[in-house]
Nucleic acid binder design. Structure first.
Length: 728
RNA sequence: GCACGCUUAGCUCAGUUGGUUAGAGUAUCGCUUUUACACAGCGAGGGUCGGGGGUUCGAAUCCCUCAGCGUGCACCA
């Protein structure tokens, strides 16, 4: 048989990769059933990409790393599942579609209405989904498409409702009136983790408050301030007793103020006295709660002042601020202004506006409430498996970050006022209070129903809110494996859930350690009494050449699909692995990707030489192995061992670099040259080449599979499933 | 403020438990169509491994300290 014609031309990834991909697909090579030699199980879920847009290089990195793990597991003979899917990404997707509709049609979501708007979102999500799926395939990711899931499909929605009900029945989900992060722009709450703090210089106003002078950066919130707080040991304010009432002249006339003593006050800051605005500030809210003080809403949900502001009522706080300053000046209440006061302002990281804390009735997950026989809290449930080593986090330093986050964790606000997402499975009777823009839509006195299915009678009205997207993605490791078991009929045994859960490893970016990883540990721990995974591997973020985080909106992203077109998925994968390390950010340039294309070409030519040299059959070992061959063999075994160890330890970059170096500088530079001079045998060359293909396959699947197909062996073989991982 | 990370070739970065002449891509320069490789190959130059101190036979690697940059968390009215 003459040498394959394709091998005579330079390596063309475009002509190869799609064909190989199809071959794998036809062979159903990515299904767990394809391999089961070792008796072990390997399972992993794909962190579902958001259907907000096409994949960027961060996703490509994720796919590359995960595919290495999965292909390695398969070659070791493990029954291997890599489960793919996409994430509806509630708020992010809604914002994206709202912007799009506003831009193209000039419509708002309110004008379209809930039903019509959701239809548009679904069309958008479906388009992005198809793009994402095509991109995943292009990268060579060997996911099991037969089990593909979506966080908002019917199965996952049912799982979300079931989860909600279980938490509710255990008293761990409650409806409470509390200070939450309100986004006036998107008209929804967001969780503490979704807030981004930005530095800002702003004037600090010193105001006369009776005998006190208080400082504030937000004079427009001060209308209702009826409490002045000082430190209990502050000698300047010794003459005032805790709880003492005084009359002060204030913005809209004289008011009765109460002196409160609390140790949270820093006597060295400003004047050591401050008034509090419990309805619009976390610290103030905490003080008010501690002393059981009343709180009054000053600013409405759109950012406008309420009647307490007197003649400024109805004005947006931004417009009202200068007017208030004028008023204070006129009344002689303005002591001084410090112009460049540095403070931080809260922004909604999901493309929203400035956060205005508001007291609202919302749904929360109680993280500090003991439950069950062990009287453990959810916070402890999240801490324990990491603390006792059942879940290992790589790199290890993120364990500390995780614990630190847990220490400060407050109850998780899970209700959102956006439309796209899982509707909260709660129904009320007789009917909901009208939305008048005020923060007092109490549902007290109403009958409540919480269930997986809607109530039978039709006089119930469902809660209009949706769930935080992380509530449903927290279920991902098991909502994708058949949880909760359907009531009808007994599933085959063992079920996917029994076989594949807990999953082996979770691989994701460190930026969603809190959002996602922690929530998965919570969900799995409470609902399944299991850990969701044994190992967490966190990769760094991909940044552009300027060091900025890649994002579609900034338009600084290198499109992975374009890179695959130009240099091949194999080259892109190597460029994203070599020279990186776990948990560290990666700056990537196109040059770097191009560089690794040369490596594909080098390997291709090694293949051409080797296969031309050996002819039609694999060369038999020489009767006696020469010293030169033996030395090369030893080197090959050392490499095999090191690569194996590196893969076992999640050091993919080290393994890839060693292979790169060996193939170029040993196989090509030394072995081929020595074969030319007959110093080493063809048998050795063939052995080293064949071994290199197997070792490199997890990293560069396409070219290795293609070269493998040219080796003298039965034609049905694929490297992916038939070639065992080499031993040493 | 608390915690963590980074500082290595012109640039972007690797360098696992301390061990020969510190590596990769790219950039610069030179050579090469000689039995794989011009969509290239080979080779060269380029590094007091942020500064200082210490431990050690031996430090880019471990310890202390200083500086700069970055990240997470918390926070001041």
């Amino acid at each position: 048989m003459p040498i394959n014609e394709r091998l005579l031309k330079p390596y063309d990834p475009n002509a190869t990769e799609d064909r190989i991909a199809k071959q794998w697909e036809t062979a159903k090579a990515f299904a767990p059933a394809a391999v089961a030699r070792s008796g072990k199980i390997f399972s992993m879920v794909l962190p579902p990409p958001n259907v907000t847009g096409a994949l960027h290089l961060g996703h490509a990195t994720m796919l590359a790393i995960e595919d290495i793990m999965v292909r390695y597991a398969r070659m070791r003979g493990d029954k291997t599942l890599w489960l793919p899917g996409t994430d509806h990404a509630a708020i992010a997707t809604q914002v994206k579609v709202e912007e799009l509709i506003h831009k193209t049609e000039g419509q708002t979501r309110a004008e379209l209405g809930r039903e019509e708007f959701l239809k548009r979102v679904e069309i958008f999500a479906a388009e992005k989904h198809d793009e994402i799926v095509a991109q995943i395939k292009k990268m060579g990711a060997s996911v099991d498409w037969s089990r593909e899931a979506f966080t908002l499909d019917e199965t996952r929605s049912r799982a979300g409702r079931a989860a909600f009900k279980q938490f509710y029945d255990a008293g761990l989900i409650y409806r409470g009136r509390r200070l939450v992060n309100w986004d006036p722009k998107l008209q929804t709450t967001v969780s503490d983790d979704e807030i981004e703090w930005e530095n800002e210089a702003t004037p600090l106003y010193y105001l006369k408050y009776g005998p006190f002078v208080i400082a504030t950066a937000r004079p427009e919130t001060k209308f209702g301030d009826k409490y002045v707080v000082v430190h209990p040991t502050d000698e300047r304010y010794q003459q005032f007793k805790d709880g003492e009432k005084i009359t002060v002249e204030w913005l809209t006339g004289p008011i009765t103020a109460t002196v409160i003593k609390d140790e949270i006050i820093d006597p060295t800051f400003g004047t050591g006295a401050m008034t509090i605005t419990p309805a619009h500030d976390q610290t103030d809210y905490d003080i008010a709660a501690r002393h059981q003080l009343a709180f009054e809403q000053i600013i409405d949900l759109r950012g406008k002042l309420l009647p307490v502001a007197g003649d400024l009522a109805g004005q947006h706080w931004k417009k009202a601020r200068p007017l208030i300053i004028e008023k204070l000046r006129a009344k002689g209440l303005l002591e001084k202004i410090e112009p460049d006061y540095q403070h931080q302002i809260a922004k909604n990281s999901r493309g929203g506006g400035l956060i205005e804390p508001q007291v609202l009735e919302q749904w929360f997950v109680a993280v500090n409430k003991p439950f069950g026989e062990k009287q453990m809290t959810l916070k402890e449930l999240m801490r324990q498996p990491v603390a006792d080593g059942r879940i290992k986090i790589i790199p290890e330093r993120f364990q500390k970050v995780y614990f630190h986050w847990l220490d400060h964790l407050r109850d998780w606000c899970i209700s959102r006022q956006i439309w796209y997402g899982h509707r909260i499975p709660v129904w009320y009777r007789p009917k909901a209070a009208p939305d008048d823009g005020r923060a007092d839509q109490s549902r007290a006195g109403q009958e409540i129903y919480v269930g997986i299915e809607p109530p039978a009678d039709d006089d119930w009205q469902q809660d209009p809110d949706t769930l935080d997207t992380w509530f449903s993605s927290g279920l991902w490791t098991f909502s994708t494996l058949g949880w909760p078991a359907s009531a009808a009929g007994k599933p085959n045994s063992p079920t996917d859930l029994e076989t594949f859960h807990p999953t082996t490893v979770l691989e994701t970016g460190y930026d969603i350690l809190f959002f996602w990883v922690a929530r998965m540990i919570l969900m799995s721990g409470f609902l399944l009494q299991q850990i969701p995974f044994h190992t967490v591997y966190l990769h760094g973020l991909v940044r552009d050449e300027g060091g900025k985080k890649m994002s579609k909106s900034k338009d600084n992203s290198i499109d992975p699909s374009v890179m695959v077109e130009k240099y091949g998925a194999d080259a892109l994968r190597l460029a994203l692995i070599i020279g990186t390390s776990p948990g560290h950010d990666l700056k990537i340039s196109e040059d770097r990707i191009r560089g690794y294309k040369h490596f594909s070409n080098k390997l291709w030519n090694i293949g051409r030489f080797t296969l031309t040299a050996i002819g039609e059959t694999a060369p038999p070992p020489t009767a006696e192995i020469s010293a030169a061959d033996q030395a090369a063999l030893t080197e090959l075994n050392i490499l095999t061992k090191e690569v194996t160890t590196d893969l076992d330890n999640y050091n993919f970059h080290l393994a890839a670099e060693k292979l790169y170096h060996y193939i170029w500088h040993t196989l090509a530079d030394k072995i081929i040259e020595r074969v030319k001079t007959k110093e080493q045998s063809l048998w050795l060359l063939y052995t080293a080449f064949e071994r290199s293909l197997r070792l490199l396959h997890p990293f560069s699947p396409f070219i290795t599979e293609e070269l493998w197909s040219f080796l003298p062996k039965p034609p049905t073989d694929t490297l992916l499933i038939n070639a065992p991982w080499p031993t040493f």
